[in-house]
C-alpha cells in the first residue's frame, strides 16, 4: 500500500488558506503510525482544521500520501460528511429522518429556505448561516428537530423559527 512520500510537498497556490493549518495537518499525518487506510481519518482532521476541504487541501493530502488527487477527491465526494464549500458561521441542520418527516420537517425546511433566501447546502449572503438537511439526529422523541451547530431544538414550530434565528444574529 501507499507510504508517505518525501518528495515535493504541494505548496498551495492561491495562498488564501493559512499556512499554519497546513503545518498542523502535516504534523498530524507525520504522527500517524502508518498512513495505510488512514485517508478518511486524515480528511476528518483536515475538515476540522479548515472547516471544509477545498481543492488545495485535497491536493496537499494527496501529495503527502503519494496517491493521485483523484483518489482523494473520490473519497471526499463519496461521503456526505465532507464538504468542498466553506460554511457559514453557524450551520443549521434540519433533520429529515423519517420520524421528523412525518411530523412536518419538510415544511420547516421550506420555511427556512424562504427566510434565509438560500437553498440546501448554500450559505446566506451575510455569511452567517449554512442550511443543511441531515438524516437523523436520534432525537426522534422531539420531532421535528433542527440543530444549529451542536444545539438541538426540538418540537420546532414554523412560527418559532424567527426567534431561534435571532439568537444567532
Amino acid at each position: 500500500m501507499t507510504k508517505p512520500h518525501e518528495i515535493d510537498v504541494y505548496e498551495p497556490v492561491e495562498g488564501e488558506l493559512p499556512k499554519e493549518k497546513f503545518d498542523e495537518l502535516e504534523a498530524f499525518i507525520n504522527s500517524l503510525e502508518s498512513t495505510d487506510g488512514a485517508l478518511i481519518e486524515i480528511l476528518h482532521k483536515a475538515q476540522n482544521l479548515f472547516g471544509y476541504l477545498p481543492r488545495d487541501v485535497q491536493l496537499f493530502v494527496a501529495r503527502k500520501l503519494g496517491i493521485p488527487g483523484a483518489e482523494v477527491f473520490g473519497v471526499v465526494s463519496f461521503y456526505s460528511y465532507f464538504t468542498t464549500e466553506p460554511r457559514g458561521k453557524h450551520t443549521i441542520s434540519v433533520c429529515m429522518g423519517t420520524a421528523c418527516f412525518v411530523r412536518g420537517s419538510d415544511k420547516i425546511l421550506e420555511k427556512l429556505k424562504e427566510k434565509l433566501q438560500v437553498q440546501v447546502n448554500e450559505i446566506t449572503e451575510d455569511g452567517l448561516f449554512t442550511l443543511k438537511d441531515i438524516r437523523c439526529v436520534g432525537a426522534c422523541g422531539l420531532a421535528p428537530v433542527i440543530m444549529i451547530d451542536d444545539k438541538v431544538y426540538g418540537r420546532v414550530k414554523e412560527e418559532e423559527l424567527d426567534g431561534i434565528l435571532d439568537t444567532y444574529r
Binding site: 481519518e41 461521503y79 456526505s80 465532507f82 438524516r135
Partner: peptide
C-alpha cells in the same frame, strides 16, 4: 475506532 463520514 474508525469514523464513518456519512454514507448509508
Amino acid at each position: 475506532i474508525k469514523y464513518g463520514a456519512g454514507a448509508f
